[in-house]
């Protein structure tokens, strides 16, 4: 790996260009929203966060995130383990399929669940006749979030599992460990940073997911309005103070997530040495 040097000549011009680009493209909008919130009045803006609608929206986002993280951590770990440690027909197909949620538009993802569980959908009428409400309700929103965040954990762990290989696991077997002991004592510790990183990404995406959740939510205030849907609805109703304040909260969470991501990556690269 090259060490790098201070940029000179054209290099300095390029560096300056990149810095300006990133500043205007990515940082500038943050300044913009801060300024606009100030214009609405900080106090007024943050008072909106205490309204029942806002509180409900954030609480809903939080519980959806919790469900998505727990289920996708279990499922994603299992999936990655099966893909890395088992040989079976169709394994490559399964592996490409895992990428699909990243390639599909969130709106289309949500729409697929409407087609599946909606009142005019494939299985919807059956569920309805049994009194189970999936879409325009909490379960549907969790399902949509699960779909869009499915790849994160699995895709973060898979390469780590492959790289670590089976040597240490076999060594543990020869020392008398049962398969379950091998998983918890050897496999899990060696994938922990990848797993955590995947979990953080899942959290970030679940908190911020909008399109898929909006589609299956029907955005019913105080019922199926998540934080992002709340922001959107306030904004389209010209209630800027509420939209900006909630946006700032989510943006602050994003910075936190980013910070955790960076430190996880650092820890991981330190341990790999």
């Amino acid at each position: 790996m090259s060490k790098g040097e201070s940029p000179r000549g054209w290099g300095a011009v390029l560096t300056l260009g990149v810095l300006l680009w990133v500043f205007f493209l990515i940082l500038f909008p943050f300044l913009g929203i801060l300024r606009e919130t100030a214009r609405e009045g900080w106090r007024a803006a943050f008072l909106t966060l205490g309204t029942p609608e806002a509180l409900h929206a954030f609480r809903l986002t939080f519980s959806i995130t919790l469900w998505a993280v727990v289920l996708n951590t279990l499922g994603g770990t299992l999936l990655a383990w099966v893909l890395a440690r088992q040989k079976f027909r169709g394994r490559l197909w399964l592996e490409s399929l895992v990428d699909l949620p990243f390639a599909v538009s969130p709106v289309v993802a949500g729409f697929m669940f409407i087609l599946l569980f909606g009142p005019r959908g494939w299985l919807g009428p059956w569920f309805e006749s049994h009194g189970i409400k999936v879409v325009y309700a909490f379960p549907g929103m969790v399902l949509a979030t699960l779909f869009v965040t499915l790849p994160f954990v699995a895709k973060e762990i898979l390469p780590v599992l492959r790289e670590v290989g089976t040597d240490q696991e076999e060594a543990a077997l020869t020392l008398g460990a049962s398969p379950v002991q091998v998983f918890f004592r050897i496999t899990l510790p060696s994938i922990r940073w990848g797993l955590l990183y995947g979990v953080v990404l899942t959290i970030a995406r679940s908190l911020g997911e909008f399109g898929a959740v909006l589609v299956v939510s029907g955005s019913i205030i105080n019922s199926t309005e998540t934080a992002t849907v709340y922001i959107h609805d306030r904004f389209t109703d010209f209630q800027y103070a509420g939209a900006f304040a909630a946006s700032l909260v989510l943006a602050a969470v994003s910075f936190l997530v980013l910070f955790i991501m960076q430190s996880l990556l650092k820890r991981r690269s330190q341990e790999e040495r």
């Binding site: 040597d167 076999e170 060594a171 008398g176």
Partner: peptide, 18 residues
């Protein structure tokens, strides 16, 4: 494997890194 009472030294040692 677990019940064989055999010690195995792997070619690349396979030490538990953590």
């Amino acid at each position: 494997v677990q019940k064989r009472s055999l010690g195995f030294v792997f070619q690349n040692y396979a030490l538990f890194k953590h």
